[in-house]
Design a protein around this nucleic acid. Sequence first.
DNA 1: GGACAACATAGGTATCTCCTAGGGAAGCCG
DNA 2: CGGCTTCCCTAGGAGATACCTATGTTGTCC
Lengths: 305, 305
Amino acid sequence: MLSLHQLTCFLATYEHGSLTAAAEELGYAQPSVSEQIRALEKSLGVQLFRRVGRGVVPTTVADTLRPHAERTLAAAEDTRRAAQQVARFETGTIRFGMFGIARLYAGAGLVADVLARHPGVRVELVGQNSAGVQEDLRRGRLEAAMIAIPQVHSEGMSVTPVAKDEIVYISSDPERLRSPVTARQLGNATLVMPDTTWRAEDSVRIAVRSWLHSSGLNPQTRIEVEDPEIAVELVGMGLADSVIPRGAAEQLLPRLAPNAGWVSFRPKIHDVFAIVHRAGATLSPAAQLMIEIATRRIQAVAQPV
Amino acid sequence: MLSLHQLTCFLATYEHGSLTAAAEELGYAQPSVSEQIRALEKSLGVQLFRRVGRGVVPTTVADTLRPHAERTLAAAEDTRRAAQQVARFETGTIRFGMFGIARLYAGAGLVADVLARHPGVRVELVGQNSAGVQEDLRRGRLEAAMIAIPQVHSEGMSVTPVAKDEIVYISSDPERLRSPVTARQLGNATLVMPDTTWRAEDSVRIAVRSWLHSSGLNPQTRIEVEDPEIAVELVGMGLADSVIPRGAAEQLLPRLAPNAGWVSFRPKIHDVFAIVHRAGATLSPAAQLMIEIATRRIQAVAQPV
DNA sequence: GGACAACATAGGTATCTCCTAGGGAAGCCG
DNA sequence: CGGCTTCCCTAGGAGATACCTATGTTGTCC
């Protein structure tokens, strides 16, 4: 069986023209190198050195094989170097899951932070929907993710809340922003809600629904859209009001609905963001890095817990 | 310590997405592959697979490393293939020593024969002078050679005569070719002799000198040249006679001195060609090939012994 | 001819590699 | 929901390997 060690011994011997010198360079005893060369010759079925009295002389076969051996060792060294570079975040890919409103107002900053600290890496911020992220985590395709809590099927998952964001009512009618919104008021409101496709798993909707249920009321959603941006624009046009996390409101309102504002619920409702990964897993340095940066980013726009 | 075996296990596992499947493909038990992967991860300092419940999932590090591992294994396979091609004479270099008049009239044919049988090989037919050939043999730089015998310092050398060639007298004076030349006649002749530089070791000269010494005479050499061709041309011009092996005479006279001819000595003198290599050495297939072809070639122009 | 230098050989030990056997977790299915 | 299967891990042991030191052999140099 051909081995890198044999090739190393071969090259050292070839270059020094001596087993003893090669052994000295490699830090072995002379018989060890001798044995490796013999094993290599047997493995390849060719004679590499003529044992001539005192000393060894490379055969023409050795001349022919030398560049191949060098290329092989160089490729191995290259493999090792690539691994080290990845370990140091000088290159490689960092994959992280992030779903929902969190990605909307922390995603770009998160990617920017990672690229600023590690310019050589590729970043993959995945997560089309909550179920997909959870499936990826469960199957091991994702190591860690940040998601809003209510939707977590947490068997075997480690869930660490890192921030909570108040859920607020937004409207372009100043009248409705005068005082905190009650369940009754919300029940009577005309609403536009985003994330239609994932409405059943959307943490904001789940939080609001359970909040309303305790008052015996049902939410009334008049308009369903996918993008939070569109929902906010519709609020700006006065066609409906909406319910979104406060961080999103503060980011989107000035840009998309300057005449609108937000107001708390009474009692207040919160959305909680958490880091999720498989329970019992040892997190890789890359995952730890992403968790650290994502946490810092989300805590810049939501309250730390 | 990184090893090719570890890389093989890594690639098999990566491609199958399973340690068990990889082990089956490689013909090992599953724990063996598992151990190799673990050793590779430790050696590189990175995690290559996430152990997730049943099954393993490659990390992004594994994605990054895979092409490097493939290149390394390909280079190793390339090394092995090169060795096999050399062993089958499909490529590589064949080096052989040949000195003196033998090369002159068997060298080109020898090279042609080798190239005809093994079109891919490089051929080196070395031997500027007898002493150099012997030194190369002794030092191991040459594995085997064909040389004329008298000059062999045979300690530690295996000498196998394969052909003998009569040494003849050449002249453009028909009078001198009438009957075999005696020692007295040779002592009175005006001679041109080739191989000036190596005159002390030239087998023809040694043979002739000892032949003359038994008659108490000394050779008279009027002209010294390097090339046998020039000596023969001078003979053709009638400026001197010469003494060369019959094989050389038959090849050179028609071309360079059509009006000249040759005649034996009385008693006859012979030059013996032998295969020489280090005693006790096991000959490589390449050397055996060259010996076989060179012997056949030389026996085509000289008498086999 | 004696001293030295370089490789081969021998023998012992530690490590590595591979196996079999058995345990535990996750997924599949009745 | 409980049993079965699948897949990986761990443990322990046998055989091979790699390395060492000590010694023998041979060629070289003085």
